[in-house]
């Protein structure tokens, strides 16, 4: 029994990791006042770039950073639209959700001889598993952490770092100030544009990492259906977590945990059909939202373009 718990926890971590990265992307962007619906598209381009660079260089770290870089380019695009040109942020995000997959598939066909699926990276060239072989086979810790990739720990560290930056540093204070009261922040001498650019670009970086966590750790290749919906789940988790890194983390873990339980229950022959079981994670999320979390409010200036000339 205890093994099963360990396995469910392990599955939870595995499933949540890409979501955590991406949700952090949402957190940083929206705290600075820019809505980012484009997380899904940024994740796709990250997953593709990660798998491609990983395949050609054989180095997972270069691939991972490359994925972040690809995400950053889309982040920059979003920032140019939303910060410099006062775009409707939702609209720009939706555009990115079309552009990301479109470009990823287009490039894939060019790099991989017409294929929309990249070639598989072998185990040694994937992300390392730091605790592989540390625990004895069949122990609790083996099932819990033995097979987890470095991306899991990086995601957790990222959450902590982001929390620290947002709430314990001057920069974080500025980001939040820009997200709540850009006008006031401006009068205090904070460069609203610069802060927003920075936040949105990093948002792309994190979402790109999220995609790479799928294509470099959970599996070892990219295919067009790999991301299918994870970005939107991460977006939901970010809102669920009330726009806070720690809250989003919990929401992602909850979702991953529900998937773990679904897989666990699926091995038994129930009267309940597997389609109903598959609904569990989604229903559970809604129930918890209604019952325990309650009202969520975004940063005050979230979604509102800031225009220096139109102050007051």
């Amino acid at each position: 029994m205890i093994d099963n718990v360990a396995l469910i926890l392990g599955t939870t971590l595995m499933y949540s990791t890409p979501l955590i990265f991406t949700a952090m992307g949402g957190v940083i962007s929206e705290n600075s006042g820019v809505i980012n619906i484009g997380l899904e598209g940024m994740m796709v381009i990250g997953a593709f770039t990660g798998a491609t660079i990983g395949y050609f260089t054989g180095n997972p770290w270069i691939a991972f950073i490359g994925a972040g870089f690809a995400g950053a380019i889309f982040g920059l695009l979003h920032a140019i639209a939303c910060v410099s040109f006062g775009a409707n942020q939702v609209v720009s995000g939706i555009a990115i959700n079309f552009l990301g997959p479109g470009l990823a598939l287009f490039l894939s066909r060019i790099f991989f001889d017409g294929a929309t699926m990249t070639l598989s990276i072998n185990l040694d060239n994937k992300m390392p598993r730091p605790l592989s072989g540390v625990f004895s086979q069949d122990s609790f810790m083996y099932y819990f952490l033995g097979n987890r990739y470095a991306t899991v720990y990086i995601a957790l560290i990222l959450v902590f770092l982001l929390w620290y930056v947002l709430y314990k540093t001057k920069l974080g204070l500025r980001i939040r100030a820009v997200g709540e009261h850009p006008t006031a922040a401006d009068t205090l001498g904070i460069d609203v544009y610069k802060i927003r650019y920075l936040s949105v670009i990093f948002s792309g970086v994190f979402a790109g990492f999220g995609g790479a966590a799928l294509s470099l750790a959970i599996v070892s290749n990219f295919r067009p259906t790999l991301v299918s919906g994870h970005g939107f789940i991460a977006l939901a988790a970010m809102i669920f977590g009330k726009w806070k890194p720690q809250g989003a983390l919990l929401a992602c873990l909850l979702f991953g945990g529900a998937q773990g339980i679904t897989v666990f229950l699926g091995q038994y022959d129930f009267k309940v059909s597997s389609q109903i079981l598959s609904m569990i994670p989604y229903v559970l999320t809604m129930v918890i939202l209604v019952g325990f979390v309650g009202r969520a409010s975004a940063p005050a200036a979230d979604g509102i373009p800031y225009d220096k000339e139109q102050k007051y």
Partner: peptide, 22 residues
């Protein structure tokens, strides 16, 4: 030619629609 190009075209249209100011 890959038909994904259509998604890129649509994405670009939506992107430009987002930025009337530009």
């Amino acid at each position: 030619a890959p038909s994904e190009i259509i998604n890129i075209v649509i994405g670009t249209i939506v992107f430009f629609i987002a930025i009337p100011r530009m």
